[in-house]
Nucleic acid binder design. Structure first.
Lengths: 217, 217
DNA sequence: CGCAGGTTTGAACGCAGTCAAGGATCGTGG
DNA sequence: CCACGATCCTTGACTGCGTTCAAACCTGCG
């Protein structure tokens, strides 16, 4: 987001924001709470989720460095947010953000772009949740992780680090941890991936996994 | 959207847009096609969807009068769109829209609000698709329909008109038509609803249905 | 070493899907 | 006006995928 703002204006920006750090597992946005701030993730990772009254949870996204949070909110937040292994954030009160958009008109455009990008992602995720099989979901998740790397290249084996526990993967994919675990084991048995440790997975045949992800087996 | 623009400026607006009518079932946005236009639904209804290669379909939303389409697109559309019983639209080429946002700065803000509203809706829909049971999904759908009425009031019976076929309801909820049909029949048997005709349904106990929708049975 | 948390694996169940037949409803043409 | 066919919807019987319940297995840490 900062890319849309001149260097010499960083002081103004800093003036409207405050930095904060959130410890692992600590929640910093409460679903349904009055939405007073925007956030930018500056370090670490964050998970966004919504809850049902009985505790069922849907993780709606993972956010990392540079990600913008709080667009999916009018007066109250439509989601909760929690640090995933510690995170640092920039907090922008709505009022301050409004001053910024008046000062930097193209910032508003930038925010819309961010929202559009997010919308497009969510469309794909709805298809995943509504129409894909468990195998396809896990495959999609692995490919998504690849594309978050700096150099996404599916023509060679890819080493992945999954910073989130299985519980989070399951709640992200609309599955149970057992199903996620079983399917990862199946992929391993099929020599599609190798599991070096719980968090460290190598995609041995990324393109085949991508094919599975698209539902073309 | 037009509410953010002065009456006397309508001419400028009209100059940048063109009207079009789409016949029932006719597609006017092709998923993946280059995104050159925004659309505003001015009459009738429209369904938005994404497809998997083998034909599985997820309907990501229904849009009616006043709704804005095309925000979930960067260079190419992230969804397809099709008229539902005939619709009229306003088409705004991206270039023209840019001229409009330069002329009316608060339009950009308006677009972001629209995107935010849509994002919040999608969060809820992801929870529906990822974590709700079939019963809860159908109940949620019925309640959603209530809230699209001008006077949403769940304390008395509500008459609903469902303009879309069962196929669309199923693809919207991530279910099959059989399941949707069975659950509507079950609701009827439980005296929660009455089915006057295929499209005309009365919620006899809206609050109980709302309770089911939230997963609190 | 022993405990605790998360993960994997196994066995059985159940919800929603699939397959298939029967019913409505509507438009069309004889 | 009714018969016919097409299309959509409902209902039933059965299957199967993913869940549930439960036990074993790591892995790190006091």
């Amino acid at each position: 987001m900062c890319s849309s703002i001149d260097d010499c204006d960083l002081a103004i920006l800093a003036n409207e924001s405050s930095r904060m750090t959130v410890a692992d597992g600590r929640s910093f946005i409460e679903e349904g709470a009055p939405a007073n701030d925007f956030f930018v993730v500056t370090g670490g990772r964050v998970k966004l989720f919504t809850l049902l009254p009985d505790g069922r949870r849907q993780i709606t996204g993972f956010a990392e460095g540079g990600h913008f949070l709080g667009l999916a909110a009018s007066t109250s937040y439509a989601f909760g947010a929690e640090a995933l292994g510690g995170a640092t954030l920039c907090r922008f009160p709505h009022a301050g953000m409004q001053r910024l958009t008046e000062r930097f008109p193209n910032l508003e455009h930038r925010l819309r772009e961010e929202a559009s990008r997010e919308l497009a992602l969510m469309q794909a995720r709805m298809t995943l949740l509504g129409r894909k099989t468990a195998r396809e979901r896990v495959a999609t998740f692995l490919i998504e992780r690849c594309q978050h790397l700096e150099k996404p290249d599916l023509s060679h084996p890819v080493e992945l680090d999954l910073p989130m526990p299985r519980t989070d993967i399951a709640d992200y994919l609309g599955l149970t941890i057992e199903t996620v675990s079983r399917i990862l084991s199946a992929f391993k048995k099929e020599k599609l991936i190798s599991i070096r440790s719980i968090t460290h997975i190598t995609l041995l045949m990324p393109e085949r996994i991508s094919t599975i992800a698209e539902g073309m087996e």
